[in-house]
Design a protein around this nucleic acid. Structure first.
Lengths: 335, 335
DNA sequence: CTGAAAGCGCTAACAT
DNA sequence: ATGTTAGCGCTTTCAG
């Protein structure tokens, strides 16, 4: 451990005050008035000695770990996860909390790392981000009063302490944007075509319905699962389309990027001849050529909100058990 | 913090021994003999009370944070990073250490999160995994005796406390494997063709040289940077090749997967007509069809070794300043 | 407005 | 072989 053995006692001595006063000053304890000059003396002494409070000691006294555990599935998409972590981080920093990574390898509840970490006071609470949490794990957490929250875009059964999302408004917004430009013939490309449990496809359908637009077969392209051959599907679609769409909503940014490339290569003008918008979040959307308009999930906010929620729970405050965050439509150059 | 206020004192009382004895037993302190029956009594009491040692208190007493900081660039490839983390984790667990994620957002040295974390005793050391560490940061760490190690596959200037890798042996092994099957006409596909600073391309060249094989133009395909159009490049290559290669080494797994797909679709028999091997590590290699043979980086070992190295440094032991780990060739179905 | 002192839960001399 | 005790660095009543 850090050899800088300068402690608050040293600072106290240097400033000619007591250790208590140092604590009062450095923590800005409210309800305690400190004479400006003593305060300054303490601050100066701290700076002079290059004092850093020992967080372990503080933890011990406060009976708080000052850290939260993050658990996620290993094969999570990096961009999404990192964005969520950024949000969490920003909720953590003002509280001087850190984050501890937990690895769960599908063990039974009691030996799961996050449980061990909680039991040994390494973490004060747990955030599951994009993790598949077995029901019995949740039950165990609830039963043992362990603070936790689940962050997920898409969740089957309604759970407690959940941050989830809704995209329907944002898809509507995308349509609004298109309609403003007089675009009504909007296609949907994606593997979810025809699947009424697919959030993206159903959002599209609902938006079309909402605006009184009818969907014909010529507006739907069911793309292959692997997405490898997709150009051939584009070929077939555009060759055979009786009346071509004026815009297409792509189920994923990947499909959108492929379509963009395909269209540009064939000389279609984007967005004047064909507008493109994706449903999905990618760090490449703003920098693609042309920059991709997209309905995007609130990754950062999911992290931030989830973490705030966790602190609420840890503080014993009552919270909304489930928060739903809206996706947003960000128009860029392709619409 | 955990409300389970059962402490070692409680266990002591329950077992009818002193707190010290509890500590001796639970930590298996060597050099201290405990009568088997007292030992059992302690263990039983601990279990009965569901005792979990408070790690914060232990930390405090030991003057160790019992955690190390991990810093990485945000846009790191997830699979690689996670694999390295697994290795680190496995070095951590037996020491009862955890890992704390640090976010560095390109600040100046003193305010970098890992420095703050070290100063406040949150972490005992730092691992930089796939992170670009500015020279002045390194200098600062060295100067202040902060234990750290750098993990990277590919590093420009020789730094201290470095885990790096070498692929040349593994590429040689891949050639050996090919030669055993009588395959000598081995092509290289990749963006690095012609670039004598590209490790993968130069490894290929050296291997060809080593085995006395000569490289003609017909063995080299420089693939496009975006890798989007790659099928056309394949087309052009295979259409024009005077004499076709019997095997191709792909610079990346991505290129290999595309080539595999391309070849299979065109009815080429893999590996009897065309063998394929990649240089790169992907979780899809074992499950692709056919399963991709590949020269792979020792991600897990990089993490594990790096972490062991860090503990050596933290313990004041002298270590090799730089460790180089070998890549390995894993033959699967494509060769 | 500031100081003295207790104590968080643990470990490690030092005693016995 | 086990118990006694001091103390890690901090916060926080309680006194003054």
């Amino acid at each position: 451990m850090n050899e800088s053995k300068v402690s608050s006692k040293d600072v106290a001595r240097e400033a000619g005050v007591s250790q208590a006063t140092v604590s009062y000053v450095l923590n800005n304890v409210k309800g305690v008035k400190i004479k400006p000059e003593t305060k300054e003396a303490v601050l100066n002494a701290a700076k002079k000695l290059n004092y850093h409070p020992n967080l372990i000691a503080r933890s011990m006294r406060l009976k708080k770990a000052m850290s939260i555990g993050i658990v996620s599935d290993k094969d999570i998409s990096n961009y999404n996860f990192m964005k969520v972590l950024e949000g969490i981080k920003d909720a953590l920093v003002p509280r001087n909390y850190s984050m501890t990574l937990c690895f769960d390898r599908g063990q039974d509840v009691e030996s799961a790392e996050h449980i061990k970490y909680y039991s040994s006071n390494r973490v004060d609470g747990i955030i599951f981000a994009f993790a598949n949490v077995p029901d019995e794990h949740c039950a165990y957490l609830v039963e043992n009063n362990i603070p936790f929250v689940l962050i997920h875009t898409n969740v089957k059964n309604e759970m407690i302490n959940l941050v989830k999302t809704d995209m329907s408004e944002a898809v509507l917004a995308a349509f609004g944007h298109l309609l403003e430009k007089g675009i009504e013939r909007v296609a949907f490309f994606g593997g979810g075509v025809g699947n009424d449990f697919d959030r993206r496809y159903t959002s599209y359908k609902k938006a079309m319905e909402y605006y009184g637009l009818s969907i014909d077969e010529g507006l739907l392209l069911k793309t292959p699962a692997g997405e490898e051959d997709i150009e051939r599907f584009f070929d077939e679609y555009f060759d055979n389309a009786a009346v071509k769409p004026r815009a297409v909503i792509c189920e994923t940014t990947n499909i959108a990027f492929r379509l963009l490339k395909y269209a540009v290569e064939r000389g279609m003008k984007i967005p004047s001849e064909l507008a493109v918008a994706a449903i999905g979040t990618s760090k490449f959307s703003p920098v693609s050529y042309p920059a991709l308009s997209a309905v995007e999930s609130p990754l950062y906010d999911m992290g931030y909100t989830g973490c705030e929620m966790l602190f609420d729970i840890m503080n014993g405050n009552t919270t909304n058990n489930v928060v739903v965050l809206e996706w947003t439509f960000t128009p860029r150059e392709t619409t």
